[in-house]
């Protein structure tokens, strides 16, 4: 029987250089749900994204992550990607000399191979490139260049979402995709995400600002504070944070050391 969750994170602990960053984090996401994670700088949001995608900066010391019933933590980064996990990087990497076209072609065909499909024909690949470029209104000049090389901050973020459109993930982690985008680009990118999403695509949106959530409307909002999710609620929680900051969360968290979990069960 299929589990009802797409991803299930249980009591996850992770350290960087023996310093515990994630201190028992739990989160469950069903197919098609959108979860927003907010939280102060340094609270561990990107570390969570790294742990979920298999970047070895952080070491997992406890807890489990199950993705479509499989043990995610055992998989290599590329296996996770082929299973359908996608991270829009907070800081996309520039890769001089590797062309966007070659990069995307290789990525797509590796994914197709994993699913037992033939490689895309050149014309079909180009058709998809064209279609997805339009979706995020990314300039053709950019996709003719090397991966992220010399892209502006906003262009890099658009390029992340373009890749998401090409790869059509099951679970997208958007780590501050809104930062660095101007007002128009924010709308384009956010609407792009909405268009890419299928009914069963899940999204975890990491953001500091309510603005993005006006477009990508979350089902749940969580506050990550000092390595734990200390509060969860609906979209109204994001509005409250925008208005009042994290001070009140800090006070609450210090009052009770207990772990917060989603209260929907």
């Amino acid at each position: 029987m299929q589990t009802e969750f797409l991803i299930q994170i249980k009591d996850l602990k992770a350290s960087i250089d023996n310093k515990e960053i994630l201190k028992g984090l739990s989160l469950e996401v069903k197919p098609g749900e959108i979860h927003a994670i907010m939280g102060p700088n340094g609270s561990g949001k990107s570390t969570l994204a790294n742990v979920l995608t298999g970047r070895e900066i952080a070491t997992v010391t406890a807890g489990t992550v199950t993705f479509e019933g499989k043990n995610l933590l055992e998989m290599s980064p590329e296996e996770r990607a082929r299973e359908g996990i996608f991270l829009s990087f907070q800081y996309p990497i520039e890769i001089p000399g590797v062309s966007m076209v070659n990069f995307m072609k290789t990525a797509i065909n590796e994914q197709r191979k994993h699913r037992g499909l033939e490689p895309l024909s050149a014309s079909e690949f180009l058709r998809q490139m064209r279609e997805k470029k339009e979706l995020v209104e990314i300039d053709s000049a950019l996709t003719n260049r090397s991966v992220n090389e010399g892209f502006s901050g906003g262009e890099k973020k658009k390029n992340e979402i373009f890749q998401m459109a090409m790869l059509e993930p099951r679970l997208a982690l958007l780590d501050e995709t809104d930062s660095g985008l101007d007002i128009d680009a924010l709308r384009i990118v956010a609407n792009g995400v909405n268009k890419i999403r299928r009914p069963d695509t899940s999204v975890i949106v990491i953001t500091h600002y309510q603005r993005l959530l006006d477009y990508i409307v979350p089902d749940f909002v969580h506050v990550l504070y000092d390595g734990r999710i200390v509060k969860s609620g609906g979209p109204e929680l994001a509005l409250k944070l925008e208005e009042r900051g994290y001070d009140w969360i800090r006070k609450e968290a210090e009052v009770s050391e207990e772990t917060w979990t989603t209260d929907r069960k």
Partner: peptide, 10 residues
């Protein structure tokens, strides 16, 4: 890591 995170093997 960036390349691998898109499904490209190491």
């Amino acid at each position: 890591f960036y390349l691998r995170s898109r499904g490209i093997d190491a």
